[in-house]
Design a protein around this nucleic acid. Sequence first.
DNA 1: TCTAACCTTTACGTCAACGGTAAGGTTTGG
DNA 2: CCAAACCTTACCGTTGACGTAAAGGTTAGA
Lengths: 168, 168
Amino acid sequence: MSRPIPADAAPSPPRLLRIQEVAAETGLTPRSIRYYEEVGLLAPAARSEGAYRLYDTEDLERLRFIRGLRDDAGFSLAEIRQLLEDEQARARIRVRFRATHDQAERREILVEAIARVDRQVETLRTKIDRLEAMILDARARRDHLAGHLEEVEAGREPTPHEHGRPRR
Amino acid sequence: MSRPIPADAAPSPPRLLRIQEVAAETGLTPRSIRYYEEVGLLAPAARSEGAYRLYDTEDLERLRFIRGLRDDAGFSLAEIRQLLEDEQARARIRVRFRATHDQAERREILVEAIARVDRQVETLRTKIDRLEAMILDARARRDHLAGHLEEVEAGREPTPHEHGRPRR
DNA sequence: TCTAACCTTTACGTCAACGGTAAGGTTTGG
DNA sequence: CCAAACCTTACCGTTGACGTAAAGGTTAGA
C-alpha cells in the first residue's frame, strides 16, 4: 500500500499465507484458527479481495504461541486470552514508544511493558511451582520405596512402620 | 472382617465420610466426585446399608491428588486416569509385596514400583520443561525492554536495531 | 416414630472447544 | 473462460466435565 518497494531487491518479501498453509505451518486446524478468531485471540493481518483470511509471520508466531500455551501448558483459551492481551498491550506500547520522544514518557512506557512481561512470567511460574510441588511429593514416595529396596537388597526383613505417608 | 479390634482402644478410628463431607474436605463438589467415580477415577471405600457412598482417608488423599492434577497442572481427566492407574498399580504392588517373603520377588516389585513413580515424575517434568522454555522466552523479551529502559534513563537516543525477536 | 437433612439414581441442560457439512463465492493454472 | 482447489459464513453435532432438577430412599436426633 504505502510501501515503495523498488519492485526488485526487496529486503523481505512479506508473503501472506492463506488459512490452510497457516494450519500446516502451525499444526492447528483451519477450524481452530477461525475459532480463535471468533473468540478474539487473533485476527488475520489482512483479507483478500474475496475476503480470504491472509496471515503474516507475526500471526504465525502468535498462533504458535497459542498452541504452545494450549498443548504444552494446558491453559484454557480464557487464560490464553489473558496472556495474549498482555502481548497486544506490548505491541501498542511499542507504537506509543516510537511515537514519542519525550524521555519521561518513554521511561514510563518501558516500565509498564516490563511489568506486563513480569506478569506473564509470574503466571507461568505459579503453574510451574505447583507442578514442582507435585514432583516433590512423588519423589518422597520414590525415596520411601528406594529405602525399602535397600533393605531388601541388604537381605533384611521388612520395616512395616505404618507406611508413613509423606506430608501433603 | 479379620481385624480383631478389642472394641476399645482401637488405635485409629477409621471414620468414613459421606460425600458432602468429602466435598467440603477436598474442595470438590459432590457431583464431580460422583462423576469421577463414573469415569473410573475412584470408588468409595464402602457403601452404607442404604447405599450411601462412604469414603476413607485414602480416598481423600486420592481426591486431593486428582484435584491437584486438575487445577494445578491442568491435566484432563484422561491424563489423570493414566497417572492414577500408576497409583493403583502401586497399591496392588504393595499387597503383592506384603504377600511374599521371597527376597528376589520383593526386589522386583520394588523396582517396578519405583519405575512407575519415575514415570509420573517424568510426565510432570516434561510439562515443567515446556513452561520453563516459555518463561525463558518471556525473560528474553523482558531483558530486551530493560535494555531500552537503561538507554532511556541514560538520556540516550533509542536503538531501533530491527527489534530482534528472540528465537522460538 | 417422625421429620429434616442427607443421600440415591436418572436424566436432561450447559459451556468450552472444537468437527463436519452445506451452500455458495474466489483464485489460479491451462 | 473454465474447472479444480480453495475459501467464506452459517449452522448443527460432539465430547468432556460437570450443574441442576426430579422422584424417591436413608439416617440421626428429638
